[in-house]
Design a protein around this nucleic acid. Structure first.
Length: 681
DNA sequence: ATAGGGTTAG
C-alpha cells in the first residue's frame, strides 16, 4: 500500500496542474486516504468534488463501512444517485461482517433480489452469514439459487459452499459439492477448505488424500491446515512431524504453523520443542500475536510451569482472554483460586470461555457457593450468554453436592436460555437428578432427550442402580443393546452395582461373564471389587475367595476393601487378617482402612487385634475423614456425622428421625425433605 | 479502479 506521504504528493501533483482534477484521480485519492483511515480528508475530497460518478459513491460508502459507521454509510447509500452491484455488495458485506447488523444484511439482500442486483459476490457474502449463524436451511436455499442462476461454478462459490456445509454440520453435502465440482474450479483455497472440512469431521485419511492430490498446488496454508488438523484430532506427533517436513519441503513457517505446533506440544507435553518455538517467535518478533501468546501460556500451564505462563501473559497481551483463560485453569487446578479470580477480574472484556473457566475452576476447587455466585453475576450482565459447558460444570457441582434445588434452577435456566439439549447436557441433568435423589426427573429428562448416546444410557442405568431399580436398569440395558448402542465398562459397572445392592448373584455373574464374552470388554479392578462385594453381601464368601485367587491383576485398595467387607459380613476375621498386610501396604495413610479393620476384629471380640490396629493408626498418624450426610434447608447446609448431637434442633431431629426409620423401607445416606416434611421451617 | 472464499484459541 502506498504511504500517506505518497497520497499527499499525488494530491499536490493534481492541484499544481491547475486544471480541474479528473474524477478518476480524486476517486483514486479517496481510496488511498480511505485505506489509511483518514476519514476527514476523504469526506473533504468528496464534498469538494464538482462531479461524482458511481465509483466515487462506492468509495465513500466503503470508507464508512470499513469504519463501521453504518448510520452515515447507509445515509450515503440511500442518497447515492447511481448504484451498481458493487454499491450493494459493499453495503451488504459491511452488514454481514459486523455483529448486530445481520438482520439488516438479510433485509438488504431481499431488497437486492427485488431490484435485480444479486450477483455471485452477494451470494458468497450471504453464504458467509448463514455459516456464522448456522442457518443450514437458508444456506441450502442460497445453494439452489446459485445453481438456478448459474452462480455455483466459480472457485469462490465452491469454497464458500464447502465451508457453509461443513460448518453447518453437513459434511456429506460438503463432499458432494467438492466431488461434483469441475476440476478447473478447484483451486488451492477450495482444496484447503475441503481439507479443513475433513478434519472438522474427524476424517483424517480423507484429509490426507485431498492434501496429497495434486501436491504441487499446496501452499503454506495447506500445510498449516494439516498441522492444525492433526493437532486438533489428537494426533500431536503427526502434527509435529508435518511441521518439520513443511520446512524441509521449502515452505516458510508463519504464525499459524507456530500456533498449531505449540498446541500439539501442549497436548503431548513436549516442553523442549515448545521452548524452541518460543525462541523462534521471539526472534521473528511475533510475541505480540495474541494467538501465539495464548498458546504459549497454554503450553506452560499444561507443563506445570505456571510462573513461565504468567510471565508470558503479563509481558505480552494482558487483556487477551485467550491467554488469561489457560492461566485461570492452571491456577484453579493447583487450588489457587485467589490468583485465578484476580486474573479473571483483570479482564475488561470477558468472553464466555473465560466465564466457563472461572466457574468450572470454582467447581473443581469445590467452592460451590462461589461458582453459583459467579453464575448469578453472569446471568445479570447481558453481554455474555452462558453456554452448554457452563451448565455441564454447574450441574456436575450439583451432582457432587446432591443439591436438588440448585440443580432444578439450573435446569430451568437451560430451558429459559434456549440452550440446545444435546447428549452431554442431558447426561449432566440425568446424573444430577439421580444423584440428588430424584430418579423420576432423571427418567423424564432421559425420555425427552433427542440426542442420545451410549454415555447417556450409562448415566440412566447408573441412576436406576443408585436407587435400587433393578428391573428398570436391566430393561434399559436391553433397550440399549437393541438400539445398537455400544455398552462399555461403565455400563457394566452400573449393572453390577444394581446386582450388588439387590443381592442378585446369578444376574451379576451373568453380566460379569457376558462383558468379556459378548462385548469384548475386560473387567477392571472396579468390576472385580463389585463382584467380591456382591458375593460378600450374599454370604458367599467362598466365591469371593476363589475370585480373589483368580485375579488377573494385583488387588488394589478398592478390591481389598470390598474383600474386607465381605469378611466382616461373613464374620471371618482370619481371612481379614490375611488381607490386612497388603491393604495397609497400599493405603497405610488412609485412616478409614484402620477403622474398617478394627471394626471387623471388634465384632468378633478380638480386642487385642483391634487394639493393635488402632495403635498402628495412631503411630502412622493416619486420619479418618468422617462420612457425613447433609440436607439443604433454604440457603443453609445442615451437616451430620454418625452419632452427631451438635445441631441446635437436635431433639426435634432425632424424634422425627425415629419416626422416619420406622416408616421408610430403607434410608439412603442423603435424605431430601420436601417442603411438607421440612422440620426446620 | 471499488465488493466475495481457506488455516490459529477452553
Amino acid at each position: 500500500m502506498k504511504s500517506l506521504l505518497d497520497c499527499a504528493k499525488f494530491q499536490t501533483h493534481i492541484m499544481k496542474s491547475g486544471l480541474t482534477p479528473r474524477i478518476i484521480d480524486v476517486n483514486h485519492l479517496i481510496n488511498m486516504y480511505s485505506k489509511h483511515s483518514v476519514i476527514k480528508d476523504v469526506q473533504k475530497l468528496f464534498d469538494e468534488m464538482p462531479e461524482r460518478n458511481v465509483f466515487t459513491w462506492n468509495a465513500i460508502i466503503n470508507t464508512y463501512v470499513k469504519d463501521k459507521n453504518f448510520s452515515i454509510a447507509r445515509k450515503l447509500f440511500n442518497a447515492a444517485p447511481f448504484k451498481d452491484y458493487v454499491t450493494y455488495n459493499t453495503m451488504l458485506s459491511g452488514y454481514v461482517n459486523s455483529e448486530g447488523f445481520q438482520d439488516q444484511a438479510v433485509q438488504l439482500f431481499a431488497e437486492m433480489q427485488f431490484v435485480d442486483k444479486v450477483s455471485e459476490y452477494a451470494l458468497t457474502t450471504m453464504l458467509g452469514l448463514v455459516t456464522e449463524l448456522s442457518l443450514l436451511s437458508y444456506g441450502r436455499q442460497l445453494h439452489s439459487y446459485m445453481l438456478k442462476t448459474g452462480n455455483s461454478l466459480s472457485r469462490y462459490a465452491l469454497s464458500s459452499l464447502i465451508v457453509m456445509y461443513s460448518k453447518c454440520g453437513c459434511f456429506r453435502d460438503a463432499c458432494m459439492v467438492y466431488d461434483g465440482s469441475d476440476v478447473r474450479f478447484v483451486d488451492t483455497v477450495s482444496k484447503n477448505t475441503m481439507v479443513a472440512a475433513c478434519f472438522r469431521e474427524g476424517e483424517l485419511e480423507m484429509a490426507q488424500d485431498v492434501f496429497s492430490s495434486r501436491p504441487q498446488s499446496n501452499d503454506e496454508v495447506s500445510w498449516n491446515t494439516m498441522i492444525s488438523g492433526f493437532a486438533q484430532n489428537g494426533y500431536e506427533e503427526e502434527a509435529i512431524q508435518l511441521f518439520r517436513r513443511m520446512m524441509e519441503e521449502g515452505f516458510v513457517w508463519n504464525e499459524h504453523s507456530f500456533s498449531s505446533v505449540i498446541s500439539a506440544c501442549s497436548g503431548v507435553k513436549n516442553l523442549k520443542l515448545g521452548k524452541e518455538i518460543h525462541v523462534l517467535i521471539l526472534k521473528e518478533g511475533m510475541s505480540l500475536n495474541p494467538f501465539l501468546s495464548s498458546s504459549l501460556v497454554n503450553l506452560y500451564c499444561k507443563c506445570g510451569l505456571l510462573n513461565y505462563a504468567h510471565s508470558v501473559c503479563t509481558t505480552t497481551q494482558k487483556e487477551n482472554p485467550f491467554a488469561v483463560t489457560p492461566l485461570i485453569v492452571g491456577y484453579s487446578e493447583t487450588g489457587n483460586m485467589l490468583e485465578a479470580r484476580s486474573l479473571f477480574d483483570s479482564l475488561p472484556d470477558k468472553n464466555h470461555v473465560v466465564w466457563t473457566a472461572m466457574i468450572s475452576g470454582y467447581v473443581k476447587a469445590h467452592q460451590r457457593e462461589d461458582a453459583f455466585q459467579l453464575f448469578r453475576e453472569l446471568m445479570t450482565q447481558k453481554t455474555t450468554i452462558p453456554d452448554e459447558l457452563i451448565f455441564v460444570n454447574l450441574l456436575g457441582a450439583c451432582a457432587i453436592h446432591a443439591t436438588f434445588n440448585y440443580g432444578k434452577q439450573i435446569h430451568a435456566c437451560i430451558l429459559r436460555t434456549g440452550t440446545a439439549m444435546d447428549a452431554k447436557l442431558a447426561n449432566s441433568l440425568v446424573d444430577m437428578y439421580s444423584k440428588s435423589g430424584n430418579v423420576t426427573y432423571a427418567q423424564r429428562v432421559f425420555q425427552l432427550a433427542v440426542d442420545i448416546d451410549s454415555i447417556l444410557y450409562n448415566s440412566m442405568i447408573a441412576g436406576y442402580a443408585l436407587h435400587g431399580y433393578e428391573n428398570e436398569a436391566i430393561q434399559l440395558f436391553s433397550q440399549m443393546i437393541e438400539r445398537d448402542f455400544q455398552p462399555d465398562e461403565v455400563t457394566f459397572l452400573a449393572l453390577l452395582s444394581v446386582c450388588r445392592h439387590r443381592g442378585l448373584v446369578k444376574m451379576g455373574e451373568k453380566f460379569f461373564f457376558s462383558m468379556t464374552k459378548d462385548y469384548k470388554i475386560s473387567p477392571g479392578t472396579d468390576h472385580y471389587a463389585s463382584m467380591i462385594d456382591l458375593y460378600g453381601r450374599a454370604n458367599q464368601l467362598e466365591k469371593a475367595v476363589s475370585l480373589m485367587e483368580k485375579l488377573p491383576m494385583e488387588p488394589d485398595a478398592v478390591i481389598l476393601g470390598a474383600f474386607l467387607n465381605a469378611c466382616k459380613m461373613n464374620r471371618n476375621a482370619e481371612l481379614a487378617k490375611a488381607a490386612e498386610y497388603k491393604l495397609l501396604q497400599i493405603e497405610g495413610g488412609n485412616g478409614s482402612r484402620y477403622a474398617q479393620l478394627a471394626g471387623i476384629y471388634a465384632s468378633e471380640g478380638k480386642w487385642n487385634e483391634m487394639g493393635r490396629v488402632m495403635k498402628m493408626m495412631r503411630e502412622r498418624e493416619a486420619k479418618k475423614t468422617a462420612g457425613c450426610s447433609w440436607v439443604y434447608v433454604g440457603d443453609t447446609v445442615h451437616t451430620f456425622i454418625s452419632g452427631d448431637r451438635s445441631h441446635s434442633d437436635n431433639d426435634a431431629i432425632y424424634t422425627i428421625l425415629g419416626c422416619l426409620i420406622k416408616e421408610l423401607p430403607k434410608l439412603s445416606s442423603t435424605i431430601f425433605l420436601e417442603e411438607d416434611l421440612c422440620i426446620f421451617c
